[in-house]
Amino acid sequence: MLLSWILLGGLSSFAVTPEQVLKTAWADTTYTSQEEMRPTDSRNPLRNVEGFVSAEQEGSKNEYEVGLKFQFRSWPEWKLGPNSEPRKKVLQEASLAWALHERYLNLISYQISQQKMAVLSSSMKLSEGYLKAQSLSLRAGRTTTKSFLGAQGDIYKLKRLESGIAQEHKLAAKRIKSWVPQWEENPLESFDLISVQEVVDAVGSLPTPEASLTARISETEFKDISRELEILRGREDQWVKGLDVSQTHKEDEIGYKVELTLQLPHLGSDDLSRQKQNELILKRALKQKEAENSKDRLVSLKNQIQNLAGLYKMTSQGLKESQKVKGQDTLAVLEGRLLQEQTELDLLSQQQEILTLFVEYLLESERLATEPTKNHLSKSQKVVAL
């Protein structure tokens, strides 16, 4: 009895739930690497401080010099600093959301493709039965060669579709296994996937933020580029570049020396600096355009979900109506059933697209960042136990 309990316990340890897959996001390198990043906004007026020692010997005379070299930052560089903190804060908040986003997409792909393969398996058997029925009808003169060849072509289409879906399922399984190595690629346990209507209700109840996550990141990158551009321009106008302070020992004499390094602005042109500035100007313009284009991202995603949900509802209703029709002829019955299963495949594809857009909406609205431990694909809103 004890041995059986241990064996069963060992087997159940390989059963994996969606929440266990989501939990691995906290160990993702995109999230953990953010903790290693150090602040760069020091507000230090000095670019570099370097000490030096030089010694000379001439006969019995010894002479040596010690000193410090100070290199100054330009005024804009001192005033603004690299200041990547706002962007770093946004990226830190988004890094976990990105890791969760990737896992959600693979969970959807794995689950839906598994359901598609089940429908395809049934469709393949029906299609083979339909082809045999067409062959018999062709011999009896009750159907045409065109219909027979059409049935044969449908089988080839199903086989190509099956190959593509099997590949999708395999890739999703491979990704999940990379996160949960002990998983033996059995069906995920307790995956109570939300319905399309629940997605529509969730999106309708969620407040739509003014700016999407992509827009926020683009705006902070725009500010960082503008800051870098101002610093580069400030270096061209910088008069005082450095200061050297040294003490000289020559026999019994001690001397002091101060050297000031000045730059005459615009007297000489730095082509590399100008080239870098031109690149930043173009990059800044692109980031500004990207930020503007991303402002309506959330509204667009919401509209896409609602429109696709309307199509899904109409397709579902059509499937229910077709199931009520009863045929007498064998070919007509098989054709009806094949059409129904094709509709089921279409519904699964629509569901997958809607769920994918929903996860994208959760990412862009920053719900994945504010509620990371909630399984947003679960009907019962299960929690990821950390």
Rank of each mutant, 00 (worst) to 15 (best):
D28C: 02
E50N: 11
V383T: 14
F14Q: 09
E162M: 10
S123Y: 12
Q197S: 14
R43L: 14
Q34R: 11
P187W: 09
E290T: 11
S121G: 15
L80P: 02
G67A: 03
N83I: 06
A285K: 13
K174G: 03
L22E: 07
K89M: 05
L96R: 02
Y64D: 06
S195G: 09
K69A: 14
G318W: 07
E85R: 12
K61D: 09
L7T: 07
S380E: 14
L158H: 06
K157F: 14
Q20H: 01
R297F: 01
V359Q: 03
S113N: 09
Y130E: 00
L286T: 07
E210A: 13
P372A: 04
T30D: 11
K89W: 00
G129D: 15
E63V: 12
S127N: 09
W78P: 03
T330M: 14
V333F: 08
L213P: 00
R47Q: 12
V384M: 04
K116D: 02
K289L: 10
S246A: 13
K276E: 15
S60H: 00
P86K: 10
P86H: 09
T40M: 06
E50L: 04
L272W: 02
E85L: 07
Q57I: 01
V49I: 13
T40C: 04
E58F: 07
K320R: 13
L280N: 04
L161K: 09
F70E: 12
K295L: 04
V196S: 06
H266C: 02
M117Q: 15
A291M: 08
I194P: 03
E50S: 15
N278M: 12
Y130S: 10
K326G: 05
V21L: 01
Q152K: 08
L355W: 02
E292Y: 12
G327N: 12
L105P: 02
N106V: 11
A291K: 00
L131A: 14
K157G: 12
F148K: 07
G129L: 15
K283N: 11
D346L: 14
